[in-house]
Design a protein around this nucleic acid. Structure first.
Length: 946
RNA sequence: AGGCGGAUAGCUCAAUUGGAAGAGCGCUGCCUUUACACGGCAGAGGUCGCAGGUUCGAUCCCUGUUCCGCCUACCA
């Protein structure tokens, strides 16, 4: 640790200079303070790592916010936590880098710009691909960095000179490199699969981009007559009757006695002229559910798709990319002509009621019952997602998952809190292939090209299902119209654009129109941002990164995939620790959303209460594994804390100003030794908490120590000696005040960077910034158990005395006035009666040796081992209240006494409990007996006076 | 449907190899004492979700149960 202090990034501790610094303003104005130091830090390059030394590195890559985003409270939490870690490690002398950047957020950004175009009466299709992309870039340049500015406001000490964007040249290079290598190894493939399709965004989505929601639906029981005996029908249960037009089989359980005789026969598919087979499938069919007979619609249901594969069934897709019924496939499906006409162009909902009507007319609808079912929605636009058969690109994930599972199992990557580990492992173990192609324009276009000559038979397939050959119509127009490239086309995958076809030498090539899933480039973030695939200095210094801080919501989207691709391409884990923090909710525990109007805007709160207050609030509530319910009062409370610190600083400044900075004393009075010992303890506690990612514990420890020990006791005790210059302890106290307060600022700095910098700078100091001062470490010289014990007794004595005063309703500030009062008889009698009561309270808290001479006049004199104090008192003449209190006290004590006596007299307890426990219990019993005697006595005396 | 987590003061949350329940906010009372009323001092307030079990002793361990939250999932 000592060695670290000499490193260039950290300024060694020095005697503070004597230069007079401007004193703190009378009132704390967070806005001024934040503005001043926010700029200062950047101007002095304090966020940049110093590469010239050999200290260990510490690196966090930022979870890149979307360029469409603006800072919400969840961001504020995650970035505050990261900044706390970064500032702390930087102060500890590590080569520290927090690498910032933004994500191009494919679908989200495209949606934003498309919405703008719509307002202008324009459209993406009308603009064309190139112009549209140019338009998105223009939008990005204009408002894409909003959130970066807001991050700076938050005090985030990112190295802004290394700002990255997922579509930067370097990052795009990494994307291509990874894509090509995965393709070459057979880990990326194309195929016509059933995928999740958003009919509004007109693109494929991966499994995890679909949000599930339970809705109330209907389970329809439909009759499918046997082809050879229409008198007999199978009853099929379905929630989606409209898809029956695409049925290609009916499945029953092979061992279901009800249906065994029908297996292999045909049914007539209602509303069509087709017949379909009855197959046996034990995987698809649950005998208990519905009727035990299931329709198979391979093109519209994921299970049916798989069942279709097992039985070699054809797939009939009856919906187009807008999830509307389309004439062409309906004709292929041999739907009744009249129905075909009425269905054409209808949405799923409309089609459902038309189909139900038609079935009813033919008496083929047996019944309809309520049924809750899961419904998938697009995570970007909340539109109902439709399973859709289309050619897409996939990553084969299983070979990538195996090492990723191992990395977490062996602890090479730690997930904190550990509870989420199983979540990760469970998902990884049953991972599915990752659909990475998106039918949008904004993003990394897939580096695959097609030769029109080599694929001349069927190259394009329209969303309506029609296949066209190259040369028929305008190619680029077709691609604009969301045509798919058929899955049997041969892609040429390359790092650079090929000029000629390697097969035929022809030059009629065009690039795959799809772009990659946004999360594909995010998955490379920890190494692509550091320069990979080049072996840059940054990459070598900072990779693998140290800690990844994120919310649970992107564990699978992002974290899992970073681990998979990081291991695959760099051979090592991308980070050591994954710290997963909670989600922020409002005070009622509701998820914050604009539509609910319960959004707490961090920027507003920062303006209102100060950034430090917000940061401290977030830190204090970041307990692991729990959602954070943010109540505004908490921010207010910590704003008060900031004010308290400010005023403490002013107090010290006021009393040290103009005096010589005191030399370190040879010996200190015990309150000074006490506060240093407590400070040392706090340093250990805060460090321990930060080491364990317990930001809540660090915060509450700081709060408790600074407010309730340093301010409430130490500063209060310092006052008498500071206020008279001749006091023997004045110089020592000044030194202790200054010294400990400076350490406190450094200890607090990671959480409250602005106010601590302001205070630190306004005190005598040496160095550029508190940021580059060493984080406080343990100081064994400060440990003083004796002083702590002595101080605890003092605190107890003072507190108890004050309690006694309050009990007698004596305002402490009236003490002086009362001092000379003459005593009257009634008061004396009252005090006499109360004596046992007060004494019992005092006795239970203090080790009183005597409680003498009381009442003597109206002076209460208390004597303990070390102190004698005389307190002037005056009883309340209305005794009723006091008697009530005494009686209540007695009841409580009696209850406790009974319980304790039961325990102590139990033979089992005596036999089995530890001796120390027995002793303790017995001692307490004796104490209680005494107290009870005193109290009862007191009560009786008081009662006679009423 | 499965998995995980939570249930402790009016609110938000701590703590505990099982042995007298703790903070903050809020509330009540007193106090404008030259750091701070965004303050000080004191106080009230808890069958530690419900029911069983293990134990001399359970808020803590076990079983069951009820709510709430989250994650995963193909029950048509």
């Amino acid at each position: 640790m000592q060695a670290l202090r000499t490193h260039a990034n950290i300024e060694p501790l020095q005697e503070p200079n004597r230069m007079s610094s401007p004193p703190l303003h009378k009132t704390y104005n967070p806005h001024d303070v934040e503005k001043r130091w926010g700029t200062y830090w950047i101007e002095h390059g304090l966020f940049e790592p110093h590469l010239t030394n050999n200290n260990p590195s510490f690196c966090i890559v930022i979870p890149p916010p979307n360029i469409t985003g603006s800072l919400h409270i969840g961001h504020a939490l995650t970035y505050t936590i990261q900044d706390i870690l970064i500032r702390w490690k930087r102060m500890q002398g590590l080569r520290t880098l927090w690498l910032p950047g933004t994500d191009h957020a494919g679908i989200a950004t495209q949606n934003v710009v498309e919405r703008q175009l719509k307002e202008e009466g324009d459209s993406r299709e009308h603009l064309g691909r190139e112009a549209f992309i140019a338009r998105v870039w223009a939008w990005k340049d204009q408002s894409g960095d909003t959130i970066i500015g807001q991050l700076r406001q938050l005090g985030a000490s990112c190295d802004w000179s290394r700002l990255r964007f997922t579509m930067d040249e370097g990052l795009s290079l990494a994307v291509r490199e990874v894509f090509v290598r995965l393709f070459e190894e057979g880990l990326i493939y194309r195929g016509e699969r059933l995928i999740n399709w958003c009919p509004r965004c007109l693109t494929a989505l991966s499994d995890i981009e679909v949000e599930h929601e339970d809705i109330k639906g209907t389970l329809y029981h439909l009759l499918y007559p046997l082809a050879d005996n229409p008198q007999v029908s199978l009853t099929i249960a379905t929630t989606r009757p409209e898809t029956l037009l695409g049925d290609t089989a009916v499945a029953v359980h092979p061992e279901d006695p009800r249906y065994q005789q029908y297996i292999g026969k045909q049914v007539r598919l209602p509303l069509t002229t087709r017949t379909i087979p009855i197959v046996a499938d034990s995987i698809l069919v649950d005998r208990e559910f519905g009727t035990g007979a299931v329709k198979i619609t391979p093109a519209h249901d994921f299970n049916d798709f798989e069942a279709g594969e097992r039985h070699g069934l054809p797939r009939i897709s009856i919906l187009d990319h807008h999830a509307q019924m389309n004439p062409l496939p309906l004709e292929e499906a041999q739907v009744d002509p009249d129905l075909r006409i009425s269905l054409s162009g209808k949405s799923v909902q409309e089609a459902r009621s038309i189909v139900i009507d038609a079935l009813q007319q033919q008496d083929l609808l047996l019944k309809a019952e309520d049924h809750t079912m899961g419904l998938g929605k697009c995570y970007r636009c909340k539109t109902v997602v439709e399973p859709y058969l289309s050619p897409q690109w996939f990553v084969k994930t299983e070979p990538l998952a195996a090492p990723s599972i191992q990395a977490v199992e062996t602890g090479e990557i730690r997930i904190i809190p550990e509870g989420w580990k199983n979540n990760y492992l469970g998902w990884m173990r049953q991972i599915k292939d990752w659909c990475i192609s998106r039918q949008i324009w904004w993003g990394h276009q897939i580096p695959a090209w097609y030769c029109q000559s080599c694929n001349k038979d069927h190259l394009l397939k329209s969303p309506q299902g029609a296949e066209t050959k190259p040369g028929e119509g305008n190619l680029s127009e077709s691609l604009n119209m969301s045509c798919f490239i058929t899955s049997d086309a041969q892609p040429i995958v390359s790092r650079t654009e090929p000029l000629v076809c390697p097969q035929c030498g022809g030059s009629n090539l065009f690039q795959d129109p799809d772009v990659l899933d946004t999360w594909f480039s995010s998955a490379l973030w920890p190494f692509s941002t550091l320069g990979w695939p080049k072996q840059t200095e940054d990459f070598q210094t900072f990779y693998p990164t140290s800690t990844l801080v994120t919310g649970l919501d992107i564990l699978f989207f992002w974290v899992a995939r970073m681990i998979m691709l990081g291991l695959k391409f760099t051979g090592t884990v991308p980070f050591r620790d994954v710290y997963i923090h909670a989600l922020v909710r409002d005070a009622e525990g509701q998820k914050m959303s604009k539509s609910k109007g319960n959004v707490i805007d961090p920027l507003t709160k920062m303006g209102q209460y100060g950034t430090d207050a917000l940061r401290f609030t977030l830190a204090s509530m970041a307990s692991p594994g729990r959602d954070i319910k943010l109540a505004e009062e908490r921010i207010e409370g910590y704003r008060n804390f900031a004010t308290k610190i400010w005023n403490a600083a002013r107090f010290i400044q006021l009393h040290v100003e103009g005096t010589k900075t005191p030399a370190p004393p040879e010996s200190r009075p015990f309150p000074d030794r006490w506060i240093l010992s407590r400070l040392n303890y706090s340093i250990l506690e805060v460090t321990k908490a930060l080491n364990n990612y317990r930001f809540d514990q660090a915060a509450s420890c700081l709060y408790q120590f600074i407010w309730h020990e340093y301010c409430d006791w130490f500063i209060e005790l310092a006052k008498p000696s500071l206020q008279q210059e001749t006091h023997p302890d004045a110089s020592v106290t000044r030194h202790t005040l200054l010294e400990s307060f400076e350490v406190i600022q450094r200890l607090l700095h990671p959480i409250m960077p602005f106010i601590t910098e302001e205070i630190w700078q306004s005190f005598p100091h040496n160095g550029t910034s508190i940021m580059t001062q060493p984080f406080p470490t343990e100081n064994a010289d400060w440990v003083d158990a004796e002083a702590e014990q002595a101080f605890a007794r003092l605190q107890d004595f003072v507190t108890t005395t004050r309690t006694g005063l309050a009990l007698l309703n004596i305002p402490s500030n009236q003490a002086d006035q009362l001092w000379g009062d003459t005593t009257n008889d009634k008061d004396t009698a009252c005090l006499q009666a109360l004596k046992p009561h007060v004494e019992s309270i005092l006795r239970s808290k203090l080790h009183l040796t005597e409680c003498e001479g009381w009442p003597s006049g109206n002076i209460l004199r208390l004597v303990t081992n070390s102190l004698t104090v005389g307190i002037p008192v005056k009883p309340d003449r209305d005794l009723h209240q006091i008697v009530k209190k005494v009686q209540k006290h007695i009841i409580e004590k009696e209850k406790e006494y009974a319980r304790l006596q039961g325990r102590v007299s139990s033979p089992a307890f005596r036999e089995k409990a530890e001796p120390s426990v027995i002793q303790e219990s017995e001692a307490r019993l004796v104490n209680l007996r005494q107290e009870l005697a005193l109290l009862t006595n007191s009560e009786q005396q008081l009662a006679t006076m009423l």
